[in-house]
Design a protein around this nucleic acid. Structure first.
Length: 274
DNA sequence: CCCCAGGCGGTTG
DNA sequence: CAACCGCCTGGG
């Protein structure tokens, strides 16, 4: 491995469980290696994340602060997770998911990833995202050979939908190109969205074709880090129907509702909760 | 061959 | 409003 990579301790495993965090459907460019470590690309950096002796270590060329931000290390998840008051089922979800964190991902990549996610499973989402990066993302030399950054909007905007045929995104391809053009023409501004309150940001994103409630909630939660977003997919819908009162309103979970959504999602998926 | 998969958008009643 | 259906693609 080239000499400019550094390994450092990021957190304890109790604070940050990398397997749960990287495998709970919020990100699509991290994969488990044969040794049990996780290799991924975030922003412009490739990285290896691994747990050993109760500690989590990161190897990358990025400054430590980048990863503290990415893994949201400044928020006290244990304190937040105690105060839900939403009953025993939620308590089970919280203890089962302990160590999950909501990542601070690039908003453009996150929006595109969740446009791609509609009516697709995670394996296929990852495949489409990787092919998209290989097709028009910047190429870099990394610790394990070449890798590609997620394409900038300017790389996508000039393309016609047919040019995206190789990534096999199907009917979602025009949605991606439309979003890229909106960005390049200044009508999609992530710093403005980030500065808005949750409802305004979500409403704004929903004006994009291919972005409805679910995709907008995911883009806001995982890309803009507004943790009151509560995306409802089929798994969450099932859990709400089975384990919560009929009049339960996710808004009652407060400003960190999105974290509780992740706990429920992870628990329901793991237990095949149907 | 069928059906479904972590939706959206347009149409219909 | 709700209910339906087509959409690209791939996997069971």
């Amino acid at each position: 491995m080239p000499g400019d990579y550094k390994t450092f301790r990021l957190a304890s495993e109790a604070e940050l469980n990398i397997a749960k965090t990287l495998d709970c459907g919020q990100c699509f460019r991290w994969n488990r290696t044969e040794s049990g470590a996780w290799f991924g690309v975030a922003g412009e950096y490739d990285a290896l994340a691994e747990a050993e002796g109760g500690e989590v270590y990161i190897t990358s060329r990025a400054p430590e602060d980048f990863w503290r931000g990415y893994f949201d290390m400044s928020l006290d998840y244990a304190a937040i997770s105690r105060g839900h008051g939403a009953g025993d089922y939620m308590a089970d979800c919280v203890s089962f998911g302990a160590g999950i964190r909501i990542l601070n991902q690039d908003p453009w990549e996150t929006l595109c990833s969740f446009i791609i996610s509609q009516c697709n499973n995670i394996t296929r989402i990852k495949g489409i995202v990787e092919r998209l990066c290989a097709l028009c993302g910047e190429k870099r030399q990394g610790m394990a050979g070449e890798y590609h950054l997620f394409p900038a909007p300017s790389a996508l905007a000039p393309l016609e939908p047919e040019a995206l045929a190789p990534i096999r995104a199907g009917y979602r391809a025009p949605y991606l190109i439309h979003a890229a053009r909106e960005f390049c023409e200044g009508r999609l501004d992530f710093s403005a969205l980030k500065a808005m309150d949750f409802d305004s940001a979500k409403k704004q994103l929903k004006t994009l074709p291919g972005v409805g409630d679910k995709v907008a909630d995911c883009a806001v939660l995982f890309g803009l880090h507004k943790l009151e977003a509560f995306p409802v997919d089929v798994w969450i819908r099932r859990a709400l129907n089975q384990h919560f009162p009929p009049d339960f309103d996710p808004k009652s979970l407060g400003e960190y509702a999105g974290l509780f959504q992740q706990y429920i999602y992870y628990y329901a998926r793991w237990h095949g909760d149907d």
